[in-house]
Amino acid sequence: MFHGSMVALVTPMRADGALDFGALRRLVDWHVVEGTDAIVAVGTTGESATLDVAEHIEVVRRTVEYAAGRVPVIAGTGANSTREAIELSKAAVEVGADGCLLVTPYYNKPTQEGLYRHYMTIAEAVPAPLVLYNVPGRTACDMLPATVERLADVPNIVGIKEASGSLERTRELIERLAGRVDVFSGDDDLAREVILQGGRGVISVTANVAPRAMHLMCEAALAGDAARAAELDTPLRGLHKALFLESNPIPVKFALHAMGLIEDGIRLPLTWLSAAHHEPLRQAMRAAGVLN
């Protein structure tokens, strides 16, 4: 259902932290023109942790409005409360989201049985396409492949974003799921290999600043053209790494500001990129061809 380069879109903000919907519209239009295959609104990169519920749903609504059916919009609606995740997901679907991305519950560290029941409960309550999201480095919660496999035959669970940083893990998921649930890379530096081994795309930070290149790389990898995918990915390797010099989305917001696409707004407890990282990130952007 979803595939290719799916950008985990930043939420543009003004210097005082106010939401900048004009910049959001421009970003959405730019991604459509550049070939981005889907937009993920208000995920981790979209600073979901510091938007209140009304802002969260308004960003999703505006993203859907600006996309105007030209590209699918997936809303980040995960929470560490099952009830809250259901409420957010229902609200996102009501304002037009094509699907929901649901991060594993963070901080409260559920068991594998708890994770299974969490997602089953959401799937039963929200009849929309759902993408699971495993990122243990942020959540202190690792959803194991056996648990994902238990969920594989739930009709509206259509994918999983696996961001464990392990090719072995994604390979195991692809083998276990056998096409019943699509596997998406959550790590840009592994995306090419994940797709070549059977994944269906990437939910990408890098696509924020290099949307055309990420789209073309994913397109080549999905077509099985490993040589072309490697040719397209090689100039991006430094960027994949530099965009995590500090916690995401700090570097990617600096990069977009350097490109003149957003203002320098970010919300505490995140802060603007440290001066020591400015030039290394700029060098990676130049190597990727996104900055003069």
Rank of each mutant, 00 (worst) to 15 (best):
residue 5 S to R: 01
residue 7 V to I: 11
residue 9 L to S: 08
residue 16 D to Y: 15
residue 20 D to Q: 04
residue 22 G to K: 04
residue 22 G to D: 08
residue 26 R to N: 14
residue 27 L to Y: 02
residue 29 D to C: 03
residue 29 D to G: 07
residue 29 D to N: 09
residue 39 I to N: 00
residue 40 V to I: 07
residue 43 G to F: 03
residue 48 S to L: 10
residue 51 L to R: 07
residue 52 D to Q: 08
residue 52 D to F: 05
residue 52 D to C: 13
residue 53 V to K: 13
residue 56 H to R: 04
residue 59 V to E: 03
residue 62 R to C: 03
residue 64 V to A: 03
residue 74 I to C: 04
residue 74 I to Q: 04
residue 76 G to Q: 06
residue 78 G to L: 01
residue 83 R to M: 10
residue 88 L to C: 02
residue 91 A to E: 00
residue 92 A to C: 12
residue 93 V to Y: 04
residue 99 G to V: 01
residue 102 L to M: 01
residue 105 P to H: 02
residue 106 Y to P: 12
residue 111 T to A: 08
residue 112 Q to E: 13
residue 112 Q to K: 00
residue 114 G to Q: 11
residue 114 G to S: 07
residue 115 L to M: 09
residue 116 Y to E: 05
residue 117 R to V: 07
residue 120 M to I: 09
residue 125 A to M: 00
residue 127 P to N: 09
residue 134 N to M: 08
residue 134 N to D: 15
residue 135 V to F: 15
residue 135 V to M: 10
residue 136 P to I: 01
residue 138 R to F: 14
residue 138 R to G: 13
residue 139 T to C: 12
residue 142 D to P: 07
residue 149 E to T: 08
residue 151 L to P: 02
residue 151 L to Y: 01
residue 152 A to K: 14
residue 153 D to H: 11
residue 154 V to I: 15
residue 154 V to E: 04
residue 155 P to M: 09
residue 156 N to C: 05
residue 158 V to A: 02
residue 162 E to Q: 12
residue 163 A to P: 05
residue 163 A to W: 03
residue 164 S to M: 06
residue 164 S to T: 15
residue 168 E to Q: 14
residue 173 L to C: 05
residue 176 R to M: 13
residue 177 L to W: 06
residue 183 V to T: 01
residue 184 F to E: 01
residue 185 S to V: 08
residue 189 D to W: 12
residue 193 E to R: 14
residue 194 V to L: 03
residue 195 I to E: 03
residue 196 L to S: 10
residue 197 Q to T: 14
residue 198 G to Q: 05
residue 198 G to A: 10
residue 200 R to W: 05
residue 200 R to V: 01
residue 201 G to Y: 02
residue 201 G to S: 05
residue 202 V to Y: 13
residue 202 V to D: 11
residue 204 S to G: 09
residue 204 S to F: 03
residue 208 N to F: 00
residue 209 V to C: 01
residue 210 A to C: 10
residue 211 P to T: 12
residue 211 P to W: 09
residue 213 A to T: 15
residue 213 A to Y: 09
residue 213 A to N: 13
residue 215 H to L: 05
residue 215 H to Y: 09
residue 219 E to A: 13
residue 220 A to G: 03
residue 221 A to N: 12
residue 221 A to Q: 11
residue 225 D to M: 07
residue 226 A to K: 02
residue 228 R to Y: 08
residue 235 P to Q: 09
residue 239 L to E: 13
residue 240 H to F: 15
residue 241 K to E: 13
residue 243 L to Q: 13
residue 247 S to N: 11
residue 251 P to S: 13
residue 252 V to F: 02
residue 252 V to G: 01
residue 254 F to V: 02
residue 255 A to Y: 12
residue 255 A to E: 12
residue 258 A to N: 08
residue 260 G to E: 14
residue 261 L to S: 06
residue 263 E to A: 15
residue 263 E to W: 03
residue 274 S to D: 14
residue 274 S to N: 14
residue 275 A to S: 13
residue 277 H to W: 15
residue 277 H to E: 10
residue 277 H to Y: 15
residue 279 E to M: 13
residue 281 L to M: 02
residue 288 A to Y: 11
residue 289 G to L: 14
residue 292 N to S: 15
residue 292 N to C: 11
residue 292 N to F: 05
